[in-house]
């Protein structure tokens, strides 16, 4: 009965490749000099689901995170698509005493040079990993990973992440209380300090209203005037802005 056993073996193999639950250990490092990542959203999902896609319009849920840092609506969107999600690993680590929250009292920002880690269990079919977090101080900049295929082989994998612009808000680079809300122009905070005030605004328009690579903050060196409240010698970056290490167990 050689034929029969071969058939059985191959169908088993196919099943285990197509749908494999996995245990992942994920760490995210902020590689920038002076920008903070707001609470990080991490999701394993299927091939039809996207947290964002370059060249397409941002969802309102993504815009909410990119403009104000709140990952909840995007987490809900992904949860509803049966993703395995984890939001705010920094807050979880702070509660466990394994990371210092910088600056003190924030809701889970990842400071420059810091690394946060979490464990994620994926269910059958959720073979793609996506990550999003707002970059502060920016208007609607975010660090992102879109649908990285999770390897099936056990091992340690490293991915570099770029900074994106959600395309939903003009990059005026002015700090304004309450501007984390959708449709309110401005940068809602400057966690590491060193921002100025009294800027006149860098721009009121954006040419690319789809998700795209962020052109970086312009900033200036005038604390009390100029066009930008962002400091050009502190808050600029170059891609990549984050490194992600994934251990597939």
């Amino acid at each position: 009965m050689k034929f029969k056993s071969l058939l059985l073996a191959s169908s088993l193999a196919a099943t285990s490749i197509a749908s494999q639950a996995q245990e992942l250990e994920i760490s995210v490092s902020n590689l920038t000099n002076g920008t903070y990542f707001t609470p990080i959203l991490i999701a394993a999902h299927d091939s039809n689901t996207h947290a964002f896609r370059v060249g397409t319009e941002a969802s309102e849920a993504l815009a909410t995170q990119a403009e104000g840092g709140n990952p909840a609506p995007l987490k809900t969107l992904l949860d509803n698509a049966n993703a395995n999600t984890s939001a705010n690993p920094v807050a979880a680590e702070a509660a466990a005493g394994t990371i210092d929250q910088l600056p003190e009292g924030n809701p889970g920002f990842l400071a420059p040079g810091k690394t946060t880690s979490l464990e994620l269990s994926t269910t059958d079919g959720n073979d793609y990993l996506s990550i999003t977090a707002m970059i502060l101080p920016t208007n609607d900049g975010f660090v992102g990973l879109d649908s990285w295929k999770i390897p099936t082989a056990a091992g340690t994998y490293t991915i570099n992440l770029n900074a994106y612009d959600a395309g939903t808000e003009a990059n005026n680079e002015l700090i304004a209380d309450g501007s984390g809300a959708l449709g309110v122009l401005g940068i809602p905070g400057c966690p590491g300090g060193q921002c100025g005030s009294g800027g006149t605004g860098v721009t009121t328009t954006e040419q690319n209203t789809n998700v795209h690579i962020h052109r970086n903050v312009l900033g200036d060196s005038d604390e009390n005037a100029g066009t930008s409240d962002v400091n050009s010698t502190v808050h600029r970056w170059l891609n990549p802005v984050a490194r992600v290490t994934v251990v597939v167990k």
Partner: peptide
């Protein structure tokens, strides 16, 4: 002007 600035990458 500032709008023309870009960082890597520029295309997918």
């Amino acid at each position: 002007n500032q709008s023309h600035r870009f960082d890597q990458p520029a295309s997918q």
